[in-house]
Design a protein around this nucleic acid. Sequence first.
DNA 1: CAGACGTGGGA
DNA 2: TTCCCAAGTCT
Length: 388
Amino acid sequence: MDSSSSAPAGASARMSQPFAPPQQNIPRIQRALLDWFAVNQRRLPWRVHYTPYEVWVSEVMLQQTQMERGVDYFNRWMARFPDIAALAAADEEAVLRQWEGLGYYSRARHLLAAARKIMAEHGGAFPSDLEAIRALPGVGPYTAGAIASIAFGEKLPCVDANVERVIARVFDVDSPVKQDPAAGVVRRWALRLVPEGLAREHNQAMMELGALVCRKKPRCEVCPLAVFCSSRHLGIVEQRPVPGKKAVIKPVQAVTGVLRRAGRVFVQKRPPSGVWGNLWEFPGGRVEPDESPEQAVVREFMEETAFTVRVAATYGIIRHGYTTYRLTLHCFGLELADAAQSALPQLTAATESRWARPEELDGLAMPAAHRKLADRLFAVAPSAAHTP
DNA sequence: CAGACGTGGGA
DNA sequence: TTCCCAAGTCT
């Protein structure tokens, strides 16, 4: 552990080249990276054609998402929406159902909106101009650069969390990478590293290196850039990148109820903005202080639908983790307290509702926790299960 | 600029 | 079980 000995950390265990400062060895870094990528890149469905559409969809899909999961979603997406025109012509309902389980549903809504914009404003051809790409809904600075460089070969860097990590280590960036002095430094080095005419390969190589080798727990033994790595030379790889502030996870108690009537269940469609925008759910909400889950679900139904309901069954608890909360969802079976009351709700938290046959739920996009509950109650026949 | 926006998997 | 993610964008 003691790195104060004369040899740089890691240099003693095996034969190694002397440290070569990265600032003076850009061409060697570029070559080492490309050579490494040529041999070690994973075979992925979006690394075959490099059409703008495929690059775009894969980049959006992989935002905040693990590669493993992205592959299945990507293949199913391309089978269902093979090109921009097919996507533009799709119903949002179908698009969200394809996306179900991936989270951050605004990505799917933006993808659809952007496809329609491309049809309307670019004659159906994906724009190659960086500004036009950036103007598409859901395309921010990262994704615009990724598409421009990977699909169109523009000499631009892609700076995602992987690349930030690689650069923070190789160039020993010693302040939080997400914030400004460091973010600018990272962008500058990222740009200087892009070789002429090879932006596609280089940018993917940087991200792939971050994903496979320069991970949070780095594998310096197999890193093609080890000899150029400043933080490794200093024995502080584990201290790079410097982290920002971390989120506080707060526990939340919530309820949801499956209201049944004549063999059907009540579901409602959430508003377009906010969490789970345009997805279908069983009504519910938070448990207030000094309130039991049973009381909460009755109150929430009254507030959201004007139905007076009664708890008829307890369906247990579903635990679901989020970025900023840890949800404990108490689930109930409900019936109308007065069987004679109208089956027409007065919606206050939804844009539409329906009394659905249980099989119908399979065609509706629902949040993961609600899908979990639906599956638990109405076990889907294996042949019908195309749930992610 | 900080906070919202999801999820299943690995340590 | 709990913690921490993983190829960001929008407001």
